[in-house]
Amino acid sequence: MIPIKPKEAMWSDEQWQAIYESGKNILVNAGAGSGKTAVLTERIIRILKEGISFDRLIVLTFTKAAASEMKERLRIKLTREIKQGNLHLQAALDFLDQAAVQTFDSFALELVRRYHYLLGIDRSLRIGDGVIFAIKRKQIIDEVFTEFYEAENENFQNLVSLFSIKNDHTLQNYINNILKKIALLPDVDAYLHDYNDHFYNEDFIRKQIKKFESLFALERERIRERLFRLKNRVDDEALLLHVLECEEALSPILAARHYSDYREVEGLKLPTIPRAVDDEKQKALVSYQKQEIKKSLDKIRDYLEYRDEDEMLAMILETKPYTESIIALFKRINAKIRVFKRENNLYEFEDVAKMAIRLVSDNQELREN
């Protein structure tokens, strides 16, 4: 139970809750300079005062500087608490230099080295320079492309023809950039294995098309809002009649709900502002709002690449062979990169992080200890 916050407490209600909440996982989402480090320090002190040993705590930060700052804050706070009579915290202060207050990277590396035998790797694994991996990745991509050329795979050849003009450098760079991004996923193999089943599922694609329609709806509502403003601000009779004529011309768009409904925009033209209007200020207002409405109509036209939802679905499904070739490239490239890393006992930080996650996920004893 969270204790009642004293009136003289320096903490906000949310900070107080973050310090004393227990028995559940908590997430504190706050901006820079909002006191997150101070709150975490106080929470650790609260846990230690309750009798939890420091060797049961793991405190992880993103940078070495933050870890050092955290240890120093804990040292100051523990020293103060001991002087105030909390003598049982002396053990925590003595243990502070050995405590797991460190970066995510260093903790993961320590865990992997300690339990390397469970992963089937050498304990002396090293973290390689990013430049080395960048060069090796490009070399392996070139090797795999050569393999695929020699195999005369039709889908691969079509892929190269689609993305290449003079040579395949653009496609290789594309593959390289995507590889670097998906390398951050927790399980790249599972992602690639399930990709086509997930993303080329007709129900999934139709749901995405519906989301695409929300872009139309956004512009439609912008048009509606501009017409509403004009009808409420224009009192010149001729101009107001003109606004109503514009609204009538736009009625197919305002009533549109599905992709195919918006095809009406293709031949749509707004009537011209009547010349016999004396109020130049209101005339300028109508002219400006009409220009903004035309911008929304142009955006809708830009989105209308297909005749209807079924044509869009068919075009997306036609890209599946290209995606299959890209996935095959990814799998082969990743396999060769893994061989290089294992043979040289050289890894990237994301590799170590994934190995640490796998250790904890697959071994109940580690989670309990």
Rank of each mutant, 00 (worst) to 15 (best):
V243I: 10
K5F: 02
A190H: 13
S34E: 05
L87S: 15
R220I: 03
L93Y: 05
K36M: 04
R206E: 11
I47P: 04
I253D: 03
E248D: 15
D298S: 10
T37S: 08
L171A: 03
R56Q: 13
A66V: 00
L239I: 01
A335N: 12
L27K: 05
N363R: 10
L111H: 03
N29S: 15
V234F: 01
K320A: 13
V144F: 03
Q208E: 14
A183L: 05
K290C: 10
K211V: 13
V234C: 06
T146K: 13
K136C: 08
V265A: 04
V265Y: 03
R229M: 14
E110Y: 13
M315R: 14
A217I: 14
R257L: 12
Y20F: 15
E237Q: 12
K77T: 08
Y200Q: 06
N153D: 15
K7E: 14
N167L: 03
K71M: 06
K299E: 05
V160N: 07
A314Y: 09
L27T: 08
N344E: 12
I141N: 05
D308Q: 06
W11Y: 13
S287I: 02
L268T: 02
D189V: 08
K180Y: 11
I140C: 06
I175S: 04
I178T: 10
L159F: 02
Q84Y: 14
R332V: 08
E154P: 00
L93T: 04
S53H: 11
I26V: 08
D55F: 09
E72P: 08
Q291F: 12
A314L: 11
S22C: 10
R46Y: 13
I327F: 04
V286W: 06
K138G: 09
I82E: 02
A314Q: 10
K5D: 03
N369Y: 14
A256N: 03
L179V: 05
Y200F: 13
L96M: 06
I178F: 04
L74M: 06
T319A: 13
K231H: 10
L96A: 07
Y259G: 05
V101P: 00
